[in-house]
Write a protein that binds this DNA or RNA. Structure first.
Length: 602
RNA sequence: GGGGAAGUAGCUCAGAUUGGUUAGAGUACUGGCCUGUCACGCCAGAGGCCGCGGGUUCGAACCCCGUCUUCCCCGCCA
């Protein structure tokens, strides 16, 4: 659709004097010039009101035939989202016409001169605080969506947080250093985005998944303290909190231990949040990975939710209740989520929850016991339990009339994932929270290795994480129990970022790769230049990477990364506004020595 | 790769779990009227490949099969 031919004006020498949202009673009587978009128009035949909107806010401008017949006449043709420049006198509204719902509702501008700078096609949906438009529609019409206040606020918060983090890190003696976007493909980790090389036909660059290796090389090179607002790329399936391309506030520092890094992280996090108007309590709480999993079933707990899980595995080791006992026998666990005063959870609600965890998380079922007002145990599973088991359950969960107990008997990961999901769902719905708005904490002491189903060890985070000094001897004797120096910063149940000390000694790095089953040749192929770098005098070093988009999401109280990124991609990786990715000319492919295999899609 | 939800007017949605006239509403849009509205109001009008492709049927928005798109989740993402 194209715009109607309209009689348009040039700006001439007229310039804006105020943002729409910043005009108050203080300007009454002054002449002002405002510029923006027609938010709404109310034409009374005589007087015409236009709500004019810019980044700053909305102000009512008035066109009266008696003030300026010409402006009034032309205002009649205005439509939504047309672009105006208008000069007029700020007037106080009479008591009856004050609009208390608008920040600028006490004043209006009597327009003397109107310049229509541009017309506009009708917007696909109205530009409001809240929109009901489908997300696909919002993404296709991203320019209109970006005009909505929540998105404008989110981008402003994003800017403020970025500025504060740069300032904070500069103030702590970090240098901002850029690293290449055209980097080397890595065999490990996420799928790479590849970029074909014209000058080296048949070879490819890879867009960096993160600057991990490059920042370690900077430490070896003696730059001491580095940071970067780093664009990162991972060609993996997306989620509400994962985009193909995203931004990390990446940092690394030399001659430090865990405490030194955490001190920096705490300062940066506090400074960043303050820039978004959020004051965090210091010091941040610390929690071990083990503690987090035991009590919350999750390595990024939202500790504002007061519900906690209870360990039950030992009770059911030799139970007559086959469903639980066999889970334990197969190396799994039994855990319980007790909820007291749970009368509000109906039987049909329990069925709904069971269906949910079966479908979404692969639960085998959802065991539950309700203790009614008379102390009777109402439950489909209670008939399988011995008196001893019932006694132990009651004692550990502090069950009482009104309590509802949810059980999972499954593999460690799954049982915890399911109960953690229920904990968050029900904790929020029943408002079992401590009332704090913000909850920042460090989770520390992650295991270095995890075993796959065949018992082979792999790294939990990445292959360069240094072990805790005191666990170093166990690298040979009991590697699975070796704890890493890895740490996470968690806020409101969202992982803001993670980091660790790195292996600076080549012998330790090699030993860790050996434990994971790498042969000498594989080590050379995958990590050759890293291992070489450690040989040229690598200082002890460690660092961190904040998921900057996630920080903005949490601080803007958004539910999706797409609401804090100007031009995000859909779950299928498409940009619905600019239509990327797209086919390219045969000539372009030819230059790159690339031939595309035809697909069904064409 | 797998599971789920959705797809009807620009937008948000009805359209019986029972297939049957010309597919409706609100809003937005267009024209007219209106000098104190602020979700302005009143009158009139226009607007539809019922996501797409097959099939069943005398007849399909509706039933069946496939497919595409968006969102949520699992896998995946050090």
């Amino acid at each position: 659709m194209t715009t109607q031919a309209a009689d348009l004006d040039a700006m001439g020498s007229l310039r804006r004097t105020h943002g729409c949202g910043s005009i108050t009673r203080a300007q009454v009587g002054e002449e002002v010039v405002v510029a923006g978009w027609v938010h709404r128009r109310r034409d009374h035949g005589g007087v015409i009101f236009v709500d004019l909107r810019d980044r700053d806010g909305i102000v009512q401008v008035v066109f009266r035939p008696e003030t300026s017949p010409e402006s009034h006449d032309r205002a009649g043709s205005l439509r939504s989202e047309w672009v105006l420049l208008a000069r007029g006198i700020v007037e106080a509204r009479s008591a009856e016409t004050v609009n208390s719902k608008m920040p600028t509702g006490e004043i209006e501008i009597d327009i003397q001169e109107l310049r229509i700078l541009n017309a506009a096609t009708p917007p696909p949906f109205s530009i409001e605080e809240e929109t009901e438009a489908d997300e696909a529609v919002r993404l296709r019409h991203r320019l209109h969506d970006l005009r909505r206040p929540p998105l404008q606020r989110a981008l402003a918060i994003r800017h403020q947080v970025a500025r504060a983090m740069r300032e904070s890190l500069s103030g702590q003696d970090f240098l901002e250093i850029e690293t290449p976007m055209l980097a080397r493909a890595t065999p490990e980790g996420a799928r790479d985005f590849l970029v074909p090389s014209r000058l080296q036909p048949g070879d490819f660059y890879a867009l960096p998944q993160s600057p991990q290796i490059m920042k370690q090389l900077l430490m070896v090179a003696g730059l001491d303290r580095y940071y970067q607002m780093a664009r990162c790329f991972r060609d993996e399936d997306q989620r509400a909190d994962r985009q193909l391309e995203f931004t990390q506030v990446d940092l690394e520092m030399s001659f430090v231990g865990v405490e030194d890094v955490l001190e920096v992280l705490e300062r940066v996090t506090v400074d960043a949040c303050r820039a978004a108007g959020v004051e965090l309590e210091r010091p941040f709480r610390r929690m071990s990975f083990e503690d987090a999993m035991t009590r919350y079933g999750c390595d990024r707990p939202d500790t504002r939710i007061l519900l906690e899980l209870v360990e039950m595995t030992d009770i059911f080791e030799t139970s007559g209740f086959k469903a639980f006992a066999s889970a334990v026998e197969q190396g799994g666990i039994v855990k319980c989520l007790p909820i007291h005063d749970a009368e509000a959870i109906s039987r049909s609600e329990i069925d709904r929850l069971e269906k949910l965890v079966r479908k979404e998380l692969g639960a085998r079922g959802l065991g539950w016991i309700r203790i009614d007002e008379n102390g009777e145990w109402r439950s489909p599973i209670v008939k399988f339990l011995s008196d001893d088991e019932k006694g132990a359950i009651a004692e550990r969960t502090e069950a009482r009339p009104g309590s509802l107990l949810f059980f999972q008997a499954d593999a460690f990961e799954r049982a915890n994932a399911i109960l953690s999901r229920l904990r968050i769902d029900l904790g929020e719905r029943l408002e079992r929270t401590d009332g704090r708005e913000w909850d920042a904490l460090f989770v520390v002491d992650f295991p270095l290795f995890e075993a796959d189903e065949k018992g082979r060890l792999g790294y939990v985070h990445q292959p360069f994480v240094a072990p805790l000094d005191e666990d170093l001897p166990k690298l040979d004797s009991d590697p699975i129990s070796v704890r890493g120096t890895h740490y996470d910063v968690i806020m409101n149940g969202v992982e803001l970022g993670s980091g660790s000390l790195r292996n600076h000694r080549p012998d330790v790095q090699r030993r860790i790769l050996e434990v994971m089953g790498y042969t000498e040749a594989e080590m050379e192929k995958s990590f050759g230049f890293m291992l070489e770098a450690l040989e040229v005098g690598a200082p002890p070093h460690g660092g961190f990477a904040f998921g900057f988009d996630r920080m903005a999401m949490v601080l803007a109280k958004a539910d999706s990364l797409r609401d804090v990124i100007a031009f995000p991609k859909t779950q299928r990786g498409q940009d619905l506004l600019m239509h990327a990715p797209s086919a390219v000319d045969a000539g372009q492919l030819d230059e790159l020595s690339i031939r595309v295999r035809p697909t069904e899609k064409g």
